[in-house]
Deep mutational scan, measured.
Amino acid sequence: SEIVKHAEEALERGEFVRIEHNGRVIEIRNEEALEELRRWVEK
């Protein structure tokens, strides 16, 4: 997914991403959060 790709690229640069999706906000700061995002987006 485009969202996950964006988050992965930001993590590689040492940045973090805040994503709003279906009214929820998730902050991607590490691999664990990235995995959570993947599960969340796939639903």
Results as ranks from 00 to 15, higher is better:
S1D: 11
S1H: 13
S1A: 14
S1C: 10
S1Q: 14
S1R: 14
S1G: 10
E2V: 10
E2A: 12
E2N: 11
E2Y: 12
E2I: 10
E2M: 13
E2G: 09
E2P: 07
E2W: 15
E2L: 13
E2F: 11
E2Q: 13
E2D: 14
I3Y: 06
I3H: 05
I3S: 05
I3K: 12
I3F: 07
I3A: 07
I3N: 04
I3V: 11
I3D: 04
V4K: 01
V4R: 02
V4W: 11
V4P: 02
V4S: 02
V4D: 01
V4C: 04
V4H: 03
K5F: 06
K5S: 06
K5A: 09
K5E: 05
K5G: 04
K5H: 07
K5V: 06
K5R: 13
K5Q: 09
K5P: 02
K5L: 07
K5C: 05
K5Y: 04
H6D: 07
H6E: 11
H6G: 08
H6L: 15
H6K: 15
H6W: 15
H6T: 11
H6Y: 15
H6R: 15
H6S: 10
H6C: 10
H6A: 15
A7K: 00
A7P: 01
A7E: 01
A7V: 09
A7G: 02
A7I: 09
A7W: 04
A7L: 05
A7T: 03
E8S: 12
E8I: 13
E8D: 02
E8Y: 11
E8V: 11
E8R: 14
E8A: 14
E8T: 14
E9K: 11
E9W: 08
E9H: 08
E9P: 00
E9S: 10
E9C: 06
E9Y: 07
A10T: 04
A10H: 07
A10E: 03
A10N: 03
A10C: 09
A10L: 08
A10F: 06
A10R: 06
A10P: 01
A10Y: 06
A10V: 05
A10I: 05
L11G: 01
L11R: 02
L11K: 01
L11V: 05
L11H: 02
L11N: 01
L11I: 07
L11E: 01
L11A: 01
L11C: 04
L11S: 01
L11T: 01
L11Q: 01
L11F: 10
E12G: 14
E12M: 15
E12N: 14
E12P: 02
E12V: 10
E12S: 15
E12W: 12
E12F: 12
E12D: 09
R13P: 00
R13V: 03
R13K: 09
R13G: 03
R13W: 03
G14H: 06
G14D: 04
G14V: 02
G14K: 05
G14I: 01
G14M: 04
G14R: 03
G14L: 04
G14E: 04
G14A: 04
G14F: 04
G14Y: 03
E15L: 07
E15W: 08
E15R: 06
E15V: 09
E15A: 07
E15K: 07
E15G: 08
F16G: 05
F16P: 06
F16S: 09
F16D: 03
F16E: 05
F16L: 09
F16T: 11
F16I: 14
F16H: 09
F16A: 08
F16Q: 07
F16Y: 12
V17C: 10
V17N: 02
V17I: 14
V17R: 02
V17E: 03
V17F: 12
V17Q: 05
R18H: 08
R18I: 15
R18C: 12
R18V: 15
R18D: 04
R18Q: 09
R18E: 08
R18W: 13
R18N: 07
R18L: 13
R18A: 10
R18F: 12
I19H: 03
I19E: 01
I19P: 00
I19M: 05
I19V: 13
I19S: 01
I19R: 00
I19N: 00
I19Q: 01
I19K: 01
I19A: 04
E20M: 11
E20A: 08
E20Y: 14
E20I: 14
E20R: 10
E20Q: 10
E20C: 13
E20F: 14
H21W: 15
H21Q: 05
H21V: 15
H21G: 01
H21F: 15
H21R: 06
H21E: 03
H21P: 00
H21M: 15
H21I: 15
H21A: 08
H21T: 07
H21Y: 15
H21K: 05
H21L: 15
N22A: 12
N22L: 12
N22W: 11
N22M: 14
N22D: 10
N22I: 06
N22P: 01
N22T: 04
N22E: 12
N22V: 06
N22K: 11
G23D: 05
G23T: 01
G23S: 03
G23V: 00
G23Q: 03
G23C: 07
G23H: 07
G23I: 00
G23L: 02
G23F: 04
G23E: 03
G23M: 02
R24L: 14
R24C: 09
R24D: 05
R24P: 00
R24F: 14
R24G: 05
R24W: 14
R24T: 09
V25Q: 05
V25M: 07
V25R: 03
V25L: 09
V25P: 03
I26C: 08
I26A: 01
I26L: 10
I26F: 15
I26S: 02
I26E: 01
I26Q: 02
I26D: 01
I26K: 01
I26W: 15
I26H: 08
I26N: 01
I26T: 04
I26M: 10
E27G: 02
E27R: 02
E27M: 09
E27N: 06
E27K: 03
E27V: 13
E27H: 10
I28D: 00
I28Y: 01
I28V: 12
I28A: 01
I28W: 01
I28R: 00
I28N: 00
R29H: 12
R29M: 12
R29I: 15
R29D: 12
R29E: 09
R29F: 13
R29T: 14
N30A: 04
N30D: 14
N30T: 13
N30W: 03
N30R: 02
N30P: 01
N30K: 02
N30L: 03
N30Y: 03
N30G: 08
E31T: 12
E31Q: 15
E31K: 15
E31I: 14
E31D: 09
E31P: 12
E31G: 09
E31L: 14
E31R: 15
E32Y: 09
E32F: 09
E32V: 08
E32G: 08
E32L: 10
E32H: 10
E32I: 08
E32D: 11
E32T: 10
E32P: 03
E32A: 13
E32Q: 12
A33I: 06
A33M: 13
A33T: 12
A33K: 06
A33Y: 04
A33S: 13
A33V: 05
A33G: 13
A33W: 05
A33F: 05
L34H: 00
L34S: 00
L34W: 02
L34F: 02
L34K: 00
L34T: 00
E35P: 00
E35N: 10
E35G: 06
E35W: 06
E35V: 06
E35C: 05
E35Y: 05
E35A: 11
E35K: 07
E35Q: 09
E35F: 05
E35M: 08
E36Q: 11
E36T: 08
E36G: 05
E36K: 09
E36N: 07
E36F: 09
E36H: 07
E36D: 08
L37A: 02
L37H: 00
L37G: 00
L37E: 00
L37T: 00
L37P: 00
L37Q: 00
L37V: 03
R38E: 02
R38S: 04
R38M: 07
R38L: 06
R38V: 06
R38H: 04
R38A: 05
R38I: 09
R38K: 12
R39W: 10
R39K: 15
R39Q: 14
R39S: 13
R39N: 13
W40V: 06
W40M: 08
W40H: 05
W40L: 10
W40P: 02
W40A: 07
W40G: 03
V41E: 03
V41C: 07
V41H: 04
V41I: 13
V41A: 06
V41Q: 04
V41N: 03
V41K: 02
V41Y: 09
E42R: 07
E42T: 10
E42Y: 11
E42M: 11
E42L: 11
E42I: 09
E42S: 11
E42P: 01
E42G: 09
E42W: 08
E42F: 10
E42N: 10
K43M: 14
K43F: 14
K43Y: 14
K43D: 12
K43R: 13
K43V: 12
K43H: 13
K43I: 14
